[in-house]
């Protein structure tokens, strides 16, 4: 995107306003993606802080990009994985279900009013049964609406691998989903 490229170049030239607007626009997306790896909010905030401060320090040497968000997601990912190797306080995706219930935001209130609590739990259990990698790719697709090409860039895997991983995740998704529907039906008939 041309807009991204111009903004990125201004930031590289040391334009504080451009830098600030990038932080404001991208912070939430980075935080959401980060919570798929790490559950301690303070540590995650520190990681994003380190990411931006090091970008500013190295701004003269950074390559141009017209895809700011995928670029930052990828940088954060590499940072978090390095962090994971260094210290073992990253919990990984596997504790998805242990996560505190989502805050009572408007969106979840709508869902609860529309559907039963049972349904909500069912969805959680389906999502919880995916592997970390599958959840990561689904996050990039569902949450960030990234194209397969952008995903291949963030995850540093080939494009055929992205579509294979995605179709595998969604197929599993569908199978688990149908399985939970049939158990539900089973429960209801008794």
């Amino acid at each position: 995107m041309q807009e991204d490229l111009i903004r990125w170049k201004r930031f590289k030239d040391g334009d504080v306003a451009a830098f600030e607007s990038i932080i404001r626009d991208e912070f939430r997306a980075l935080f959401e993606y980060g919570t798929r790896f790490i559950h301690d909010r303070d540590t995650l905030n520190d990681c994003i802080y380190d990411l931006f401060t090091s970008l500013w320090d190295r701004k003269k040497f950074l390559a141009d990009t017209d895809q700011i968000r995928p670029y930052l997601l990828k940088s954060l990912r590499n940072r978090l994985l390095k962090e994971k190797e260094r210290a073992n306080h990253l919990t990984g995706f596997d504790s998805w279900q242990e996560q505190t219930e989502p805050e009572d935001n408007a969106e979840s209130r709508i869902i609860t009013s529309e559907t039963s609590a049972l349904r909500e739990r069912r969805i959680s259990s389906v999502l919880g049964s995916l592997t970390p990698r599958q959840r990561e790719i689904i996050h990039l697709k569902f949450f960030e609406n990234l194209s397969n090409e952008q995903i291949s860039d963030v995850l540093e895997i080939s494009r055929p691998a992205v579509s294979n991983l995605l179709s595998q995740a969604l197929r599993l998704f569908r199978d688990k989903w149908q399985a939970t529907i049939s158990t539900l039906f089973f429960l209801l008939t008794f």
């Binding site: 996560q99 989502p102 935001n105 389906v126 999502l127 569902f142 949450f143």
Partner: peptide
Amino acid sequence: QQAGDLIRSWKAHSAGV
């Protein structure tokens, strides 16, 4: 309906900054 639920539910699991 199911697809919509899944997407909304995925989004609802947001950390909420």
